[in-house]
Simulated scan of single mutants.
Amino acid sequence: MIFLALCLTYAGLCSLCLAMPKHFQELICRAPQLRERQVLRVLGWAAQVLALGACIVARGAPVGSVMYLGMLTITGLGLVLMLPYKPKWPLYLAPVGTALSLFLLPFSH
């Protein structure tokens, strides 16, 4: 459950990153349409809410919310450090990590 929350946090940050026109242009090599930016923004915030919910389910509300903020910090730092050196990696790691965590979800606990 915690790995799922970590992957959802990372995927949400990647979606919110791509919702910005500058980052979308750099990573996808074309200008984003308004509808694409809106969808990416909604998906990013939905992933963040699901990650917070997964942390709360895993550890309870007091510890889960603090754990979520720690995960948000770690994944944000990882994304910020990865973008200048390997700019295409976030595009590949977000879906792969989320799919892997959903596959491993039944085996947790």
Rank of each mutant, 00 (worst) to 15 (best):
S15D: 09
F107A: 12
I56L: 06
L100N: 07
V63N: 03
G60V: 02
C29F: 01
L18A: 04
P95R: 00
R35E: 11
M67C: 05
V63Q: 09
A19T: 01
L72D: 15
C29G: 10
A11V: 07
G70H: 13
L16A: 05
Y68I: 10
C14P: 11
L91E: 14
V63L: 01
T73W: 08
E36F: 08
P106M: 01
H23Y: 06
L91H: 14
L104E: 08
S15M: 02
A31W: 05
V63R: 11
L100V: 05
R41P: 10
M20S: 09
M1A: 11
P90N: 02
M20R: 07
K86S: 14
C17Y: 14
G70Q: 10
A54G: 02
A51V: 01
Y92Q: 12
R59K: 12
G64V: 06
Y85Q: 15
G53P: 05
F3K: 01
V42T: 04
P106L: 01
P21Y: 08
L105T: 14
A99E: 15
G78E: 10
V66I: 11
W45Y: 11
E36T: 00
A5W: 09
L34C: 03
F103H: 14
L6Q: 15
H23G: 12
L100W: 09
L8N: 15
V57G: 04
V42F: 06
L81F: 07
C7N: 11
Q25G: 11
Q48H: 06
G64T: 09
C14Q: 04
L13C: 03
C7K: 10
V66Y: 03
W45C: 10
L52F: 07
T73F: 07
V63T: 10
L79V: 10
L79Y: 04
L13E: 13
S101V: 05
W89Q: 11
L6G: 12
L4W: 09
A61P: 13
Y85R: 01
A58Q: 06
C55F: 02
A58S: 00
Y10C: 07
V63F: 02
L93P: 14
L13V: 12
K22S: 10
G76P: 14
A11N: 08
R41M: 01
H109W: 08
I74F: 01
L81K: 15
V39G: 00
M1D: 10
L40I: 05
W45I: 14
P90K: 00
R37H: 13
A11L: 00
L16N: 03
P90R: 02
R35H: 08
L83D: 14
V80S: 14
M67Q: 15
M82W: 07
T75M: 02
W45N: 13
